[in-house]
Design a protein around this nucleic acid. Structure first.
Length: 370
DNA sequence: GAATCGTGGTA
DNA sequence: TTACCAAGATT
């Protein structure tokens, strides 16, 4: 059960928080130079599950390449993915383009100005809708992100599991009672700045926090209990072969399917070992697996060649829900051949394609074992 | 509600 | 090395 503060205490909190924000807030961030909804939107999408320092150069480049909603709406997908390359969660930028196309009607951009309406746009959920509505349109709605979960959980000693979707509503209601109706955008951003400075997840410094007097968990020394968050499931281990084939025409490269992990990104052919063995956790023989891969390469691409492991040592690459162990196999063709799938590409052609981080690791691995 | 979807930083 | 965290949304 949460004990809500008195009106007097709420007013004191707003004043304390916003005074601190005016004095110490990160006003120099590139997306905080104005309240243009497009700027707020792009920054909020980029900042999802991504740290501020990572986002800054991406944001600046993106605004140069796609300065307006119209530019975003009409951009070629490959150019968008290239601009997002390395940021991760690539459906974010695909969804953003769909939303941009929703926004452009009869050649003009019409922005919905409420959280409720903003949530109807692709890729804009409750957090991002509240952030845009409060910052760009001054609607008093709480933007509940990881920072707000953590800050509010400590201020009010809320012990609901923040990993559970149903918990969001509780925090949203608490936030909506606290938010300053005159400066809703600044209030939300102040909570986030607080959550990324004095009230971080680890190594927090509640002692020097401007709102320590309001922090119930700090006041009774229980702050490392908050927020309550259940454990995530461990990532599943998957073994892969990455196949580097060269010919006089270049490297064999392939565009991934338009749905799922790394959709529409380009990689060398990848085979999960589950293609060749029932139990890839068991003690498999590398030579047998390589022979099986040669057969599949002929079936899938029409390529006949001998493959050799570049190294016994695998590349490790971790996603949120999968852990890849990738062994690189190499093969060479001396003559030009047509392929049933994929494309032959030169290095300069490849450089223009959006490639995932794991492909970059494969390139590095190849250079290291040359 | 549980799974999916990336990458970089840090203890 | 492992585990967790970082301005979440979609299916």
């Amino acid at each position: 059960m949460i004990t809500m503060w008195t009106d007097e205490k709420i007013h004191q909190f707003r004043k304390t928080l916003l005074n601190w924000y005016d004095q110490a807030g990160r006003k120099n961030l590139p997306w905080r130079q104005d309240q243009d909804p497009y700027h707020v939107w792009v920054s909020e999408i980029m900042l999802q599950q991504t740290q501020v320092n990572t986002v800054i150069p991406y944001y600046q480049r993106f605004m140069t390449l796609f300065p307006t909603v119209e530019a975003l709406a009409s951009a070629p997908e490959e150019q968008l993915l290239k601009a997002w390359e390395g940021l991760g969660y690539y459906s974010r930028v695909r969804n953003m383009q769909k939303a941009a196309q929703q926004l452009v009607t009869d050649g003009r951009v019409e922005w919905p100005q409420t959280m409720k309406e903003l949530e109807k746009l692709k890729g804009i959920g409750p957090y991002t809708a509240a952030a845009i509505a409060s910052i760009a349109f001054l609607e008093p709605v709480a933007a509940i992100d990881g920072n707000a979960f953590r800050v509010l959980a400590r201020l009010f000693k809320i012990d609901a599991d923040i990993r559970l979707p149903r918990t969001r509503q509780l925090f949203f209601e608490v936030g909506n009672q606290l938010i300053d109706p005159k400066r809703p955008g600044d209030f939300n951003q102040a909570i986030m700045d607080l959550g990324s400075s004095y009230m971080t997840a680890k190594n927090y410094d509640s002692e020097h926090s401007p709102v320590k007097a309001f922090n119930a968990a700090y006041q009774d020394g229980t702050e490392d209990f908050y927020p309550v968050k259940s454990k995530a499931r461990p990532a599943r281990l998957i073994h892969y072969f990455a196949v580097r084939i060269t010919s006089p025409s270049g490297y064999l490269f392939e565009k991934r399917p338009k749905q799922g992990l790394l959709a529409n990104f380009w990689t060398m052919p990848l085979y999960a070992l589950t293609e060749f063995t029932e139990d890839p956790e068991a003690d498999w023989q590398l030579a047998e697996m390589v022979t099986a891969t040669e057969k599949r390469l002929k079936m899938d691409y029409g390529i006949q060649t001998t493959l050799k492991p570049l190294s016994e040592k695998a590349i490790t690459h971790v996603y949120s829900h999968q852990k890849w162990q990738v062994i690189v196999l190499t093969g060479t063709l001396d003559t030009e051949v047509d392929v049933k799938r994929g494309q032959w590409q030169t290095l300069s052609e490849i450089a223009k394609k959006p490639q995932p981080k794991v492909q970059e690791k494969i390139w590095q691995h190849l250079r290291a074992h040359k």
